[in-house]
Simulated scan of single mutants.
Amino acid sequence: MLSLLALGALPLLDRGGVAREVWQLYHHWYVVLSHGTFPAYDPLWQYPPGAGVVLLSPAMLPGLTYFQAFVVLSLAADGVIALALARAGTRPGRSLRGAGYWTLGLPLLLHVPLARYDVQVTALAVLALLALSRSPRACGAFAVLGALVKVWPVLLLMGTPPGRTTRSAWMSAAVTGSATLAVLIALFGNPLSFARQQGGRGVQIESLGGTVLSLATHAGWPGTVRYQYGALEFTGPHVSTVAHLSLVLSAAALALLVLWRVRARHWTGATPSDAALSAVLLFTVTSRVISPQYMIWLLGLAAVCLTSRHTTQRPVAALLGAASLVSVIAYPTLYDQVAACTWAGCVLMLARNGLLAAAAVLSFVRLWRSTTGAVLPKEPGADTHRLPHGTLSPS
Rank of each mutant, 00 (worst) to 15 (best):
P92M: 09
Y101D: 02
Y227D: 11
V183H: 04
Y335V: 11
V119N: 01
L4P: 08
L362H: 04
L10S: 14
I329F: 06
G100D: 04
L301S: 00
R91Y: 03
Q313P: 01
A173T: 11
G373E: 13
A69N: 07
L73A: 03
L127G: 01
A186C: 10
L10R: 13
L4C: 08
V72F: 04
G16C: 09
Q24D: 15
A360Q: 03
P58I: 14
D42S: 11
T284S: 04
A317Q: 02
G269R: 06
W45A: 08
V289W: 01
S3L: 14
P43Y: 08
R15F: 08
V126G: 00
V203H: 01
A275H: 00
L33S: 03
P222Q: 09
H238W: 13
A330D: 10
L362K: 05
Y26M: 13
R94S: 03
S250I: 14
Q313N: 01
P162C: 05
L114F: 07
H389N: 13
T384P: 01
V154F: 03
A322F: 06
V121N: 01
L156F: 02
T122V: 13
G210F: 01
A360T: 07
I329V: 15
L127T: 04
M158A: 14
T371S: 08
Q337S: 13
V119A: 01
L187C: 15
A131H: 04
H389Q: 11
L145I: 14
F188S: 06
S393T: 11
V258L: 14
S395G: 11
W102L: 02
S324M: 07
P153Q: 05
L299R: 00
A303L: 04
R137H: 09
A264G: 02
T391E: 03
R201C: 06
L282Y: 00
V248S: 06
F188P: 05
Q198G: 02
G93C: 07
T176K: 02
S246E: 15
A351T: 14
A131R: 03
P272A: 03
Y41S: 15
A173R: 02
A322N: 06
V361K: 01
L64M: 14
S133Q: 12
Q204A: 13
S74C: 12
V203Y: 02
T235D: 13
V183P: 03
A318M: 11
G93Q: 06
A69G: 12
L299V: 04
V338E: 08
G8H: 10
Q198P: 05
W152Q: 07
V22I: 15
G100N: 07
T180F: 08
G17Q: 12
L12I: 15
L319V: 04
G189K: 10
R116A: 02
C346Q: 10
R265A: 02
A128G: 11
W297C: 00
G354S: 09
A173D: 03
S370I: 09
W343T: 15
S3P: 06
L61Q: 10
L208V: 15
L25Q: 12
L132S: 00
V242S: 00
L4M: 13
A216C: 10
T165R: 03
S287K: 03
L114V: 13
H266S: 05
A231K: 05
M171A: 14
L109M: 14
L7C: 12
V328N: 00
G381K: 10
A351P: 06
T333D: 09
T391I: 15
A76L: 15
L298R: 00
